[in-house]
Design a protein around this nucleic acid. Structure first.
Lengths: 343, 343
DNA sequence: CAATAAAATGAGACCGGTTACATCAAGTTC
DNA sequence: GAACTTGATGTAACCGGTCTCATTTTATTG
């Protein structure tokens, strides 16, 4: 691999002149610039950017911790990150953590060992352990989607509580009184916020909260399917099921159909995220649309702002959501609670 | 940020001893090692791995060019890459190319500028322009999923021709004689191979090829929906539609239902990939299962083998596929071709 | 105890750029 | 023409590690 010294030698100038000719052409004479460019061409010179990064102390890499890259929603977030990172001259180092904190720690270390300048976390967990560096400065981390309770870090988030309340109100407005919720992992703040929103709406409508109508899930299609089975087997099944993501809702839809019940005539189903498949579900899914790509691009933009010193305090960016009403939700059945015909 | 010299000073030893104590502890005395480790702890030393990479000339980064990270299938491939890369001590630099060759070129340059050691391409395109470096050695690239015609690069691929033939034969065995195909982008070798397999099966069954039954698509849900509309409006519509991926098949399914036709009684639909949503489609989708994660892990393993000099010639790895028969395909209708009732 | 082998340690070159500073040539001003 | 300014270029330090080679210390042996 040819280096800058080879170029300098061939061009008959110093390495400093070569560097200047390439980086600040206005500082060198036209003659020198021409000689340098010719020599660069001749030896096929490509500057070793690793050396530049090392010298400058900036890797221009950003670590991204993603619980599951194969998740449709996260894939969109990554897509948005990628776009903005490229625009700002950063590359993304992708880490598929699968919720494993050891893996998170390994990648977080890339920041501490100068392999990356900053980190974006899509889960409510701080992989660094503390919020500041040894010298007390803010760690270059942005938290998006599911955010930490303590607000030491810049965050990009949806008002999950309000969104869940909006969806629940939509279902209430259709006359539903027994509304089940298929939740995400128990401990996540995201799930807690959405549960709060759900309860807010119930309380406002004067409906008692029923623990039986809460069903755990893990955001997978299968967990939705299982949750629906549980809910349908209740002595008093719900007339509407609100799922914390679209995958689970699609699983729920399948299970309900397998029971011979109709959606939304017998039971309404709602999701969250508005992934592309939601509109192609049968019936098309009522859901909360999140600006997934914007989560990614905003997170990257914030992180770059921090890295370049344009941001002093940790901001909290709240992105808008939208209730998307499709055919999977409809008026609550007026008759007695429907009974499964099979399954 | 503390460096190795600070540690050396505090420990009262040379920088070489510090380096050895951390990298080849068997070379230093127990006493020195203890002093060094204490000093490391005291100053909170983290080796600057950027410096190490620079010095060694190995970045231990791999660039991955993905047409669309938000695509469900590719997301799984990335997931597999991530896993294997982490095991082998490499990090993934993710590039979302969206088919844009300029973006590909920018990221390919990361290899040439030593920011990455190698590259994985998921499309049939060589972002480097040539197959060898200036000195004639093989470029560190692996091509997966959709592969280049010329075989200068190691490739990981499905026997798409055989897979398409298998699916077509499945449909033929159900009595279908008018089998449509919803294709991917025209110029891709992947689409060409699958078309060849489709024609192989038709020829073997003595059925004439009908150009009208080929429908272009772009692997999106929407393009499947549109393709179905076109196919249903034919004077003689197909009795089965074979789509080159599951997204398009799901789009096709929706459009067919909107026409009031039943699947599979009136028309059969088949996909390709076996994404998780395929099993949750209504009816569940017959498809070709591809080992997506294995594409990723194999591609990374091959690339690392190249980088570490364990691989001299470019191998071609062919991964297995599996015909997954679900409810979206069934016997061809025995009556006259069904007519749309609405839509 | 001297001679020698073996183990431990230190000094400093090196990777490939950038850049502060020194140097030098050419032009400007009085 | 001397003094000074300006622009172009070169020299070499520097980033933070690794690693070769020389040197010193310790262990072994006759």
């Amino acid at each position: 691999m040819s280096n800058i010294r080879a170029v300098a030698e061939l061009a008959g100038v110093s390495v400093a002149s070569v560097s200047r000719a390439l980086q600040q052409p206005e500082l060198v004479s036209a003659k020198t610039k021409a000689k340098v460019l010719a020599a660069v061409e001749a030896v096929g010179y490509r500057p070793n950017l690793m050396a530049v990064k090392f010298r400058s102390g900036k890797s221009h890499n950003l670590v991204v911790l993603v619980p599951a890259v194969a998740n449709v929603f996260f894939a969109r977030v990554i897509s948005g990150m990628q776009q903005t990172a490229a625009e700002k001259g950063y590359a993304l180092l992708l880490a598929n953590t699968q919720g494993n904190q050891d893996i998170e720690a390994i990648y977080a270390k890339m920041v501490q060992t100068s392999q990356a300048d900053g980190l974006i976390q899509l889960r409510a967990h701080n992989p660094f352990g503390s919020a500041t560096t040894a010298d007390g400065s803010m760690l270059p981390m942005v938290n998006a989607c599911e955010v930490l309770d303590q607000q030491q870090f810049p965050t990009v988030v949806l008002d999950n509580r309000a969104a869940a309340r909006t969806m629940t109100e939509h279902l209430l407005s259709l006359g539903h009184r027994r509304i089940a919720m298929v939740k995400g992992p128990q401990r996540s703040p995201l799930t807690r916020d959405r549960l709060d929103g759900y309860r807010d709406a119930l309380t406002a409508a004067g409906i008692a909260f029923d623990e039986q109508l809460l069903c755990p899930g893990n955001f997978s299609l299968d967990s939705g399917h299982k949750a629906a089975a549980t809910l349908l087997s209740l002595s008093q099944p719900p007339t509407a099921i609100f799922c914390e993501n679209d995958e689970m809702a699609i699983g729920v839809v399948q299970r309900i159909k397998q029971s011979g019940l109709r959606i939304p005539e017998d039971i309404s189903v709602a999701g969250f995220d508005d992934i592309s498949f939601a509109a192609y579900c049968d019936p098309p899914l009522t859901t909360i649309a999140q600006p997934a790509e914007e989560f990614g691009s905003t997170a990257v933009a914030l992180l770059v702002d921090i890295l370049q010193g344009r941001l002093k305090k940790a901001p909290k960016v709240i992105l808008p959501y939208e209730l998307v009403i499709r055919a999977s939700t409809g008026p609550a059945p007026t008759t007695a609670a429907p009974q499964p015909t099979r399954g």
